[in-house]
Design a binder for these strands. Sequence first.
DNA 1: ATCCTCCCCTAC
DNA 2: TAAGGTAGGGGAGGAT
Length: 881
Amino acid sequence: MGSLLHENSSAVRKRIQAHHFDDENGDEYDASTFGGFEDYFRRKKIKLQNLDADIRSSAADCPPIFRGVVAHVNGYTQPSLQDLHRLVVSHGGGFLQYLGGKTDATHIIASSLTPKKREEFRRYRIVKPAWVVESINAGRLLPWDAFRVVDEGQAQKVLKFDDGRIKSQANTPRAGYREQSNSSWYTAQLATSDQAESQRSPLAQLETPYRAEEPPSTQSDYGEFPSFVSLDEPSKTPQQQVRPTTPQLELSSPHRDEPKPSVTPSRSESDRLDVAPAPLPLVREPIPPKLDMTSEEYNAQLLSDPRMRTSSVANPDFIQQFYSESRLHHLSTWKADLKAQLQSAAKEKLHTQLKRKKPVAGARRYIMHVDFDCFFAAVSTLKRPELRGKPVAVAHGTGSGSEIASCNYEARAQGVKNGMWMKGALQACPELSVVPYDFPAYEDASRKFYGAILAVDGVVQSVSIDEALVDITMQCLEAGGSDGRGMSEGSVYREQAKADEIGRGLRATVKEETGCAVSVGIGGNILLAKVALRKAKPAGQFQLKPDAVLDFIGNLTVRDLPGVGYSLGTKMEEIGVKLVKDARDLPRERLTSALGPKTGVKIWEYARGIDRTEVGNEVLRKSVSAEVNWGIRFVDQTQADDFVRSLCQELHRRLVENLVKGKQLTLKVMRRSLDAPLEPVKHLGHGKCDVFNKSVVLGVATDATDVLGKEAVSMLQSMKISPGDLRGLGVQMTKLEHLKSGSPRKPEGRGSQRQLNFKASPVRNRIERSNNDPDDLESPRRGDTESVRPVPSFSDSGHKPLNISGTQFIMPSQPDPKVVAELPTDIRSRLISQGKPRRESRSISPCPPARTRPPASTALPPQSQLDPDTLAALPADVRAE
DNA sequence: ATCCTCCCCTAC
DNA sequence: TAAGGTAGGGGAGGAT
Ligand SMILES: Nc1ccn([C@H]2C[C@H](O)[C@@H](COP(=O)(O)OP(=O)(O)OP(=O)(O)O)O2)c(=O)n1
Ligand SMILES: [Mg+2]
């Protein structure tokens, strides 16, 4: 169980690497987009882990010259963060990944600092990495003063970015410091982009510790796409046969409802003309442009264009419309539906046919990973036969910021990738044809696909709308005539032949019913099926047999392994692991100390082709959320509040649909980074942002719209973010309580089989265009976003809190009294924790509250605050009363 | 040692 | 123009 389904991506992604900086490949997804963007700092954060004890024990012979020293690394440094960590700890020192915690650092190691950072770290001893290295070489602690970081100066390049502005996504960062020599491309970028910036001011509270480290690279938005080359290697296999079969899942279903709008448009307009905020990064903000207009004024102006209004939050139907057009939303929704339906189908199957014995424990397993080739592109192209053989991509438009959801292999041959922005794609492939999304058609194809898969009668686990895992061990062992443990050559041969036969039949069936190609990867476990799939594509099938396992996976790059993205890939590269087989040379401890206990073991096992995860074990959901980070442009706080209420209404809908209620509500806010331009590169995109989270623990699980709305609005207001700078908002419920009823209501499906229904789907269709486009200049690569983390510590609540340990105790927020009143039974207590302020350098901040917090503090009843500590100890409900 | 919270990361 | 969502694994750091 673990249930990890790693989702895999089909492996098809390739890597390019241009070496040094390379890559970026943008990958589309990979680094990407969402989660990934913020990357910059994140990476930093993550980087090491500490298992300081391990390090110390393995370096018992190193003189403890850093005893008493507690170091923290800021920005990119020459010995890397990880290396410095190891050096300091192995020589008796302490190390902090973050500042702001209870333990404070005695020294900050940095190559250079921007003025801003310098101010932030004013009270620390700031030294260059050489202090560590040279002290070790000298065998004693050298005076830090001699290694004081002066001003910026030297490390020039590094410095500059340091602060962050740039963010690109992909690896750039490391490239930066790691290989500076070639930083040409990226250096150039910086030069242009960087600017002074440094000041942030107003609230500059503290920033996060890390933020500075951002790497360079493309800036969030404007970056360009480097061109890369990529290629994959498809090797394919034949396929043939058809097989009947046919159960089906239905996907169809209910629908969502009405929206409720609330956003009020409005805005004032300012008169000015349009001065467009220049998109140039340069201009942006060091100083609020001369003409400074506030972000609210800017948005008002922007929204004066009726078309803008329609596509942004100013439109009351915005949420509904946005979701109907959001491919990522559809992907998530489909997956949730499929998961629920397959689970109930499996449950039913259990009852009906109880005889399903599970294979013997240690027996061989046969897992099949089935996935459509360029799914959206293939389905959308069915209606455009004349485009067959030509490079095609699915996107909403041809503007530079439009994202490519899927592109066919002809386009990939030219360097286009899923998730890439149109600008970059057109640069790589000028003759690219763009076709519109056709969500209903994707559902239809998927329904047929799953129908064929269920007909195989194995254990099924959905990975996504176009991808599934099928455990066909039973079928294969039966064909082989053994229990799966013996090594009879004949049995094994028959089992493998059976697996191939099932795969071929499935491919033929799906191809026939949908007109689209699917590829099949077969292996002895999920990992092997997944890596086999990448070799199978496109339109092929590949069975990775036991004898070939070590050799095959050993020559893949670690990035090809499921679960290894940009961040993990980078960390592994730092410890000398580029290819999977490189990991075999390292002891388990080395991996666990560098990657974390679970991850380290997983990689150690993956390197040997081991993966015990079973197909199909999924569990109860742990959270339900709704967020929108596109088209957010408010002119006043009221609009923002209304929008949050709309999101809560949507969240309510989803909670009801899934038959759950939750006790913790978290508000996520993306705020334009202070150094980001008012207008991101991507049309109505969020651009470079800082992300803040704040949560409230309710005494009683709820799904009431008004409660959610009040709490969320209260949290938003407490953050005190200028409404014009809001770029993304989201609400999430956790600490769920599942209502008794069995399955969530939507899928329901019932029955056993064979038909899954998707809920509703919007309809869509549109135009298609063919390549070229007008503008485009550079395209940002995808990673444009970024987000940083917390920042100010606004304690958000200024109000009443007592904060207590890190959380504030607030009552129901402001509006509360009423709320409280209303919910007599319920919610009364809650607690709020702000997430963000996490650790910033606290040095500065006045008092970021101490964070201690018991698990959750609860708040109390209505109005006042109570003693947190005490309460904390009790279960929320109890105290509430 | 274990649990909890607050993120980060990954996948599609 | 464009529709940059969402769930779950897991790590860091602190509380117990
Ligand atoms: N960044 C991304 C990645 C994927 N998708 C959507 C469109 C894809 O068609 C679908 C399935 O994703 P896959 O990773 O399976 O990619 P494809 O099916 O397009 O290609 P292939 O599986 O051949 O690599 O998910 C998306 O919208 N945005
Ligand atoms: Mg696919």
